[in-house]
Write a protein that binds this DNA or RNA. Structure first.
Lengths: 165, 165
DNA sequence: ATCCAACTTCAAGCCCGCTTCAGGTCAAGG
DNA sequence: CCTTGACCTGAAGCGGGCTTGAAGTTGGAT
């Protein structure tokens, strides 16, 4: 099982097997998410490990990481070997938290919605479906929990000068 | 409580109270998400109802709707009055489904991750953390459930000619 | 009457994650 | 050898959701 020629995949083969377009693979490579060697004729040849890295990238995207974040995360995993359980554990537990947070937010949203449906609100006089100050914006994308207070009640619900969502 | 002058908000006031930038409000208006009247000097004056509509937009975004979808949804709600329970119910139940789907996907992801952590895999020999054909791509954004079969096992795991994500 | 912050419009720019295009090169089968 | 399809690069384009900039106008306070 010494690395033989046939371990090296062309970009087309990698595309087929990963389900990504070749353009996406070149793009990923330009970002340093995957790496290739070149033939004498300057064509890319990918190690099988690239498939693993791509799987990682796709999974990470689902968890909501940007490609830049993925790059950082990948930097903590071995380049050409399968990660050890401990490599993997540190990464995966971060993801767990992300996922938990996302689920919690969605559930909160769902609960609020249910309340609104029940009360037939959005009448906006004390409906929960409102978040005047948009406080959560600073907590990052997707982090705005909605719906806090009623703007019809007070004159200056705003907190700071930062109006930029 | 007849609609008085002071019910009309300037774009700056609306920005403060909604937490959005004025540029975003103009943008929303250009998309038909909110509406204003104009002063003799051509400045926008928003009815209070705009706050409600903005709250709706932000909430909808959280649920994953594009602004175009929001526009469609808003078209089913009354322009200047609070929606009735039935108006609201039809819209909200759609959201419920979206939310439920998103939660289900996240939980599936979480389960897979947990499995991977347990087995210390990503060794890619029979790890669940892989989805060669990426079948779910056609099901829309966010719909890819991950991780199905192992590319190291067969030569042509691909299903059709569609390699695009 | 004057001032100045807040408003106006329109066009262009930005970020992300790619795709598409143009113009050329490589490599494997006949 | 020749063809053909896969590959190469760099630049530009796209869609979504805004922001920024320039150049000009309004309106409320003094």
């Amino acid at each position: 099982m010494t690395p033989s020629r046939h371990d090296r995949l062309t970009i087309g083969q990698l595309a087929e097997r990963s389900g990504l377009a070749t353009s996406a693979l070149r793009y990923y490579e330009s970002l340093g998410l995957i790496h290739s060697e070149r033939t004498t004729g300057n064509q890319r040849r990918y190690p099988r490990a690239a498939l693993r890295r791509i799987a990682f990238v796709r999974a990470a995207q689902q968890v909501g990481l940007s490609l830049e974040e993925v790059r950082t995360a990948l930097a903590r995993l071995p380049e050409d070997r399968a990660p050890t359980p401990r490599d993997w554990h540190s990464v995966a537990s971060t993801w767990q938290h992300r996922i938990d947070r996302q689920i919690a937010e969605l559930q909160m949203m769902k609960a609020k919605l249910t309340g609104c449906i029940g009360c037939g609100c959005l009448s906006m006089s004390r409906c929960a479906l409102y978040n005047a100050g948009d406080r959560a914006a600073a907590a990052g994308p997707g982090a705005r929990y909605l719906l806090t207070r009623d703007p019809d009640d007070g004159p200056e619900p705003v907190v700071g000068p930062e109006r930029r969502l």
